[in-house]
Design a protein around this nucleic acid. Structure first.
Length: 467
RNA sequence: GGGGCCGUGGGGUAGCUUGGUCCAUCCUUCCGGCUUUGGGAGCCGGAAACCCCGGUUCAAAUCCGGGCGGCCCCA
């Protein structure tokens, strides 16, 4: 295993494959195979999405992958934002298509023609739907597992509302949902408002959820967009108000992707491999029996333990492979990031105990057979909290307040600098630091002087190198 | 967008500069067998590779051209 600190990029590339998440050998750039273990983790994340969005009155749908060129071209800014990175389907068999089809880079242009048919009156609103599908973008830059792909496992929620204020409320609700997701995935984050020139193509404004990877680069792991009526007008999505007048709806979206898994890998992993937060781990406890001459007894006891744990709702796996030694298994499961290991050997059998080993701290805990289930539950929840807290602490250290341009390049992470908010000053900050403004915190702080023009401002720019 | 590096069994590599010593090295993996098991066990036997197309040459993993693919750094 590469050393994470010395060469994060190499470490990351190696661990995603060796831990059994993906197989990168598929012969198309930016597309990989999800292997069973990786797919299970992603699936667990998706399952949680389904759960929580359903709790917040969203319904799951599934739209076609192909979008006709004619629908795609209805919103001018949206086209400009995506046209250079869409995959086109130009032929059916040997015949050229009259109307070309594109692979969705995101689903606005697939969904909104249907919204126009679905929404008739105020009673149809709000409309809240989501889907979990793959989207395609023709990335020309270098691709990276989970982080920059040409085929992306994508979550998108779309809502339509009567008024701008109702759409604003939706975004507040989205942030509430996000906070729960962040806890579930143990991911620390900052929410920022995107600069005017960096918002989603077609949006009035965009909020980004940013986290910081160990390399110091920032990673956008979720977005919320306020569309206002920018899409409802070209797509003719109108509703009949109580007073009999027609009005265009106000729309929002909430997007996330497999980047979340990239963040989990990068932020929690170590030189031994992955560390999967217990809440989304396919295997929360792995039992490694130490079988010697007392083979039978230890194995039988292990099975009993497995069944007990399963009954109490813990995701457990018994590693009864007899062609590997315990040492090999320890390394193997650590690589895969199983949060808790349970060892049972002849010595433990005599004492009526089991040994627990935490993946996050490697702490060994001996616990009696009477108390072990309760203890496991406590420890799993403690690991979840510990992962979140220590990641949060590390991330906060990477955000540094600075008040001059020169200081920015000494920051390994995010430099928070006073900025008047103008596009001219913004671009100058980016050009002179060779970094990007990834956005600004929503709440303004103390009044300081813009690092470029010196104007007084409470606004801050987060300046960093994004992925 | 610019620059650099690279492509050899399933994975990681040696060989390439200076063509022949290569029916290709080592580690790992996989298969069969015996023996083992509290932090990557051992022995025996076996399987498995020069990215593609073209060129130079008596001779190409090695040199040249093109293609495809991958990686890294910078903007």
């Amino acid at each position: 295993m590469e050393h994470k600190k010395e060469d994060f990029s190499e470490w990351y590339n190696e661990v995603v494959e060796s831990a059994g998440l993906v197989d990168k050998r598929y012969p198309v750039k930016g597309m990989h195979i999800w292997r069973p273990y990786g797919w299970k983790i992603m699936h667990n994340i998706d399952t949680y999405f389904r759960e929580i969005f359903t709790d917040y009155s969203h319904e799951e749908v599934n739209f076609p992958l192909l979008v006709p060129e004619t629908e795609f071209k209805k919103e001018a800014e949206h086209i400009r934002g995506f046209e250079d990175e869409v995959f086109w389907v130009t032929h059916g068999g040997l015949d050229e298509l009259d109307i070309k089809l594109l692979l969705r880079p995101t689903s606005e242009t697939a969904m909104y023609p249907m919204f126009s048919l679905w929404i008739r009156s105020h009673a149809d609103l709000p409309l809240k739907i989501f889907q979990i599908v793959n989207v395609f973008r023709y990335e020309t830059k270098q691709t990276r597992t989970f982080i920059r792909m040409r085929e992306v496992h994508f979550f998108e929620a779309h809502t339509a509302h009567r008024t701008y204020e109702e759409a604003e409320k939706q975004i507040k609700e989205d942030i509430e949902i996000w906070k729960k997701i962040a806890k579930k995935l143990a991911l620390p984050y900052k929410i920022v408002k995107k600069a005017e020139w960096d918002k989603f193509p077609g949006a009035i404004y965009s909020l980004g959820v940013e986290t910081i990877m160990p390399s110091g680069r920032t990673l956008q792991i979720a977005t919320f967009h306020q569309y206002g009526q920018n899409f409802s007008k070209p797509y003719d999505i109108k509703y009949l108000k109580e007073d009999g007048e027609h009005e265009y709806v106000h729309q929002t979206t909430f997007g996330m992707s497999e980047r979340l898994l990239g963040a989990i890998v990068g932020i929690h992993g170590d030189d031994r491999g992955l560390i999967i937060p217990p809440e989304i781990a396919p295997i929360q406890v792995v039992i490694v029996p130490i079988v010697t001459k007392k083979k039978k007894e230890v194995l039988e006891e292990s099975k009993k333990i497995r069944d007990e744990l399963k009954k109490s709702g813990i995701k457990v796996h018994l590693d009864d492979r007899d062609n590997y030694t315990p040492g090999y298994k320890f390394y193997d499961w650590e690589l895969r990031g199983v949060p808790l290991r349970l060892e049972l050997g002849p010595r433990d059998m005599e004492k009526g105990q089991v040994v627990l080993v935490r993946r996050d701290s490697r702490e060994k805990i001996s616990v009696s057979r009477e108390e072990y289930i309760g203890k496991i539950k406590t420890v799993l929840s403690d690991i979840q909290d510990n992962l979140y807290n220590r990641a949060k602490e590390k991330m906060e250290q990477k955000i540094v307040n600075v008040e001059s341009l020169d200081e920015i390049n000494n920051v390994e992470g995010v430099a928070a600098v006073p900025w008047c908010g103008s596009e001219e000053c913004g671009h100058e900050i980016e050009d002179r630091t060779e970094r990007k403004i990834i956005g600004s915190p929503i709440e303004e702080g103390d009044v300081k002087k813009c690092v470029i023009c010196g104007k007084e401002t409470g606004k801050v720019a987060f300046v960093a190198k994004p992925y």
